[in-house]
Simulated scan of single mutants.
Amino acid sequence: MDLQLNDKVILVTGGSKGIGRAIATAFVNEGAKVAIVARGEETLEQARAELGDVLAIQADLTSEKERGQVIEKVISQYGTIDVLVNNAGGSNGTTTAETDLADFHAAFELNYFSAVHLSKLVLPILKEKQSGSIINISSIFGRESGGKVTYNSAKAAMISFTKSLADEAISSGIRVNGVAPGSILHPTGNWQKRLEQDPEKMNKFVENEIPAGRFGTPEEVANVVAFLASEKASWIVGATINVDGGQSRSNF
């Protein structure tokens, strides 16, 4: 299927590894002009070498100033932005009782406020064009308990934000949607580490918790993101789509 994304300018945060790199790869394969952002210089350079002609930007997206600089660099290179994929994220802390309040603030700054701020920064660009897409990568644990509480809470906020912004922006021709991955296996992810540490436990987890009978792949998430960014998804507005092999226990 031709998603008609050729020459579209795509910004992917957290684009140097895992799901983010797969998303960037999917857009490159569609002929788009891609910019990726990451904090780690080494993985960023590896991704740039693998992806080819992409704009690789090193930045700490917990910094309001650096978020603004990211947008400036993309505009300087490509002149515009058509699609923003808010994929940067991570988890910290343990239980609510044992997690410092500062860790909650840090989790929201990375997982939630970075997405809110970058969305606000690209909105004027997309409104001027009367077109474009914002896609927020959350998690099935944004709808139900399962991961660390800081992460769950931030991703729940992102799902709510996605719907709120979608209703606000669609009148300007801008579609906002989300993707909620389940347990995705990739070399740099937590599930890979857990699998290596205790294969028997992880195999039992898959058997008991994932009806499809396996972990998901980054490419399976990336394919949904690319579709949502395209005009083939023109009537999908404000949705956050589970990509989880049936893992989620939620029925909405």
Rank of each mutant, 00 (worst) to 15 (best):
V28T: 06
V237C: 08
N111I: 02
T13P: 13
T80K: 11
A38K: 09
K201T: 06
A22Y: 01
Y112K: 01
K204G: 02
K163Q: 12
A239H: 04
L61S: 07
H105F: 13
A212P: 02
A222H: 06
T240L: 06
T188P: 05
S76G: 04
V28Q: 06
K155E: 11
S171A: 12
G178I: 14
S133M: 06
E128R: 13
L118D: 01
M1A: 09
G79R: 00
L84N: 04
E209P: 08
L51D: 13
L51K: 00
L84Y: 01
L110G: 11
G52D: 03
S63T: 07
P218Y: 02
E45Q: 15
F215A: 07
A49P: 07
E64F: 08
M1Q: 07
L185V: 15
E109R: 11
A106R: 15
G31K: 03
Y112H: 15
Q69C: 04
M202S: 07
R48Y: 09
N190T: 14
Y151M: 09
F113E: 06
E72C: 09
L185G: 13
K33Q: 12
N203C: 03
Q77P: 13
G31H: 03
Q77A: 14
N92E: 14
T96M: 08
T188C: 03
A56T: 09
G18H: 05
G18S: 05
T13V: 07
N136C: 00
Q58P: 07
I236M: 14
E144K: 09
T150I: 09
W191M: 11
A35P: 11
S164Y: 14
A212G: 10
I71C: 07
A226I: 14
E207D: 08
K127H: 02
A212H: 05
Q192W: 11
A212S: 13
I174P: 15
W235K: 14
A59Q: 07
K73G: 12
A47G: 03
F161R: 00
R249C: 02
A157C: 04
V237N: 10
K127V: 04
